[in-house]
Design a protein around this nucleic acid. Structure first.
Lengths: 145, 145
DNA sequence: TTGACTTTGTTGCAATCGCAACGATAATGG
DNA sequence: CCATTATCGTTGCGATTGCAACAAAGTCAA
């Protein structure tokens, strides 16, 4: 037949790898707090930035704006974040973690870093691998698109 | 706030990277032949194996069996593959490329490999990166799951 | 053979998703 | 100041997804 081997095809391998790696940690926050991937990203992002708009997260967290909007609504409904109109610009909605949200993140963040460390130490060239991933992320931003 | 940086979190980076890399090539076969990712994987897999069951592809191509089933139905509807009951085991459905399907794959396969080469040559440690990806794929099969 | 159990592929259904349309607000420019 | 244009967040809708239920086919033991 053809000489093309799907299982050795880089885009396929990366998709499978990302799925597996992501699934490993997402299982944790899903069964602990019922978070989806989008909700986890919103919370994690709010942890660093304090108070941000939906648009900001939409851009930086690689999520569609409807995803962010719906994730934020659900997080607010469950008491993890607050939504407030930005007084300076009425179009913006400022998101911020509640105490409950901060407690959740304080529980999850160390586990996230431990999970990451677990993977990287199991890998031989962990540092070089990270460097390659970073380089590809910057590269793809330009030539592929 | 917290000291957790989502954009430096490996599962997140891998998800973004896989999405970008995959999107780059999937745009090609989508606009040329209207294929989804699942359909592309089925076709690519049939290219190597000749005639396989739905179950085989479900296992090896990391697709849900309903995905494979629906992808196969659509591919058959468009004349790219044939579906036939396996005479030895009536439960199995043997999938195989038609001439039209083979022509499509013969068109896409070189482009896929060129795309992959383009990425790897742009990357500094291409060979080591591939090795890391392979190692992680094997690793994750055991400890993460 | 029969009857219980397993495996395979399809389908129904609810949940989710992306996209576009929309209302609301802000910025621009005449 | 008003009219036009752009931006932001939400929502409706069609398409897609995963999950579980299911029918069909096979296996195996009694």
């Amino acid at each position: 037949m053809s000489c093309f081997d799907l299982e050795e095809f880089l885009p396929y391998q990366l998709a499978v790898l990302a799925d597996q790696v992501s699934r490993g940690f997402s299982a944790l926050y899903r069964q602990r707090y019922g978070l989806s991937v989008a909700e986890w990203r919103v919370v994690a992002h709010l942890g660093q930035s304090g108070m941000v708009s939906v648009r900001e997260i939409h851009r930086r967290a690689m999520l569609g704006k409807s995803q962010v909007s719906r994730a934020a609504s659900k997080l607010e409904r469950n008491g993890y974040i607050t939504k407030a109109a930005n007084p300076a610009d009425g179009r913006l909605v400022s998101l911020a973690l509640t105490e409950r949200g901060k407690a959740m993140l304080a529980d999850l963040a160390p586990k996230a870093m431990a999970y990451e460390r677990e993977i990287l130490t199991a890998l031989d060239g962990g540092t070089e691998f990270r460097a390659s991933v970073r380089q590809l992320l910057e590269l793809e931003g330009q030539f592929g698109r």
